[in-house]
Design a protein around this nucleic acid. Sequence first.
DNA 1: CAGTGGTCTAGACCACGTG
DNA 2: ACGTGGTCTAGACCACTGT
Lengths: 233, 233
Amino acid sequence: MSTDQKTSYLDVKNVIRRRIHDTVWEPGSLMPGEVELSQEFGCARATVNRALRELAQDGMIERKRKAGTRIKSAPTRHAKFVIPRIREEIERMGFDYRYALIERKEKTIPDWLCARIGGKAGEDVLHLRCMHYAGSRAFQYEDRWINLVSAPKARAQTFQDINPNEWLIREVPFSDGEVILSTVNADQIMSEMLNVSLGAALFTLERITWLKDMPMTFAKLYFHAGYQMTTRL
Amino acid sequence: MSTDQKTSYLDVKNVIRRRIHDTVWEPGSLMPGEVELSQEFGCARATVNRALRELAQDGMIERKRKAGTRIKSAPTRHAKFVIPRIREEIERMGFDYRYALIERKEKTIPDWLCARIGGKAGEDVLHLRCMHYAGSRAFQYEDRWINLVSAPKARAQTFQDINPNEWLIREVPFSDGEVILSTVNADQIMSEMLNVSLGAALFTLERITWLKDMPMTFAKLYFHAGYQMTTRL
DNA sequence: CAGTGGTCTAGACCACGTG
DNA sequence: ACGTGGTCTAGACCACTGT
């Protein structure tokens, strides 16, 4: 009568976590290899492997072939935030989503944008300014630039009835992106658009998207006052 | 002469990703089961399993036992942000990290905090206000509350020479947490502390931490003007 | 070159949740 | 009840990289 349930990768994960927390293994030091651990835990190497793989993904340890696995001295904390599609975010709150194009202009790429996203000088870009509403309330002001070289189809799109994000998702694949969260004091334009007082603290999200080194689009989103992003750890 | 390298879980992942993007399988609909896919790809079920598991983790699909695997209609976009330890963040920028305690006071838990973190009325808490400097420049103002019921050891700690976060990491385990990013206009105190003009837009990070339903600590961090969080997708 | 993690396999049993 | 995903195993080969 042995209560020999097989040891799960979760058990392994937890034990190791505990050991790291209790400094059984010094930060920065090497921990035993997979084979050794699998013997200790009485399970297959694959089980240990999965536990360690996930711990590495969580940023608790660092693994290198031949070098072994070491405890991260500075256990990095990650938080996963949802970057919502605006329509869904608004509808999930129970409001009607409404979109309005304010301006649409083809231009030559400005220098600052060139530097910002790594484009080539002289290329054509499409500049869009739009608003997103939740019911009758202004929700987000969007300042969007689309590279017409890498996304020429945008030329034929008026963006009167579809917002840039939804169009891009449908029409343009992308490989890589960058997101920057920051804040800004509302200037004249934003205060009018978002109906907030001049200087109000606004949450902003900048997003750059590439397709294999080709810059596709740059967007700066200004949220209504009081907007916040939430996540669980 | 067959170039029969074994198909990797990465291959599977990529093909599936492609199919989802190309709407080979309708959003919201069921996709084939693991067995069927493993036959199609000519690999072991474990391989398909890993591919699907990771795709689920990336938010592209949703899996349920017995129900099968379906394509997420609203492919959620996630972004993983690093929640840095302030000392490391500052030192990584090449500055000296300096910490200063401004105020330390034991109190009865205020109502708003009670509601905020789900504590019991009447419990004792420790309220700390501190500053973090990068070299000579103010970097972050911290407003911290520690539950003295769940972390009684905090009573004996002056927090003169160690910042709350580092102490908590060392002394108190935690199971669960919540992070909220938002913005605020600098009030009198913050403008003095962070040396910014009154009303400047500040980036704030609130953090609540629990240990098995026991609220441990609540912190609101106010960053210097111009602070931003960055991540790759 | 040799040791460590990375991955694949084929088969097995289990747990959950739908019908 | 039973089908689907979830996990474990034992063994094998590969790929990277420190020595």
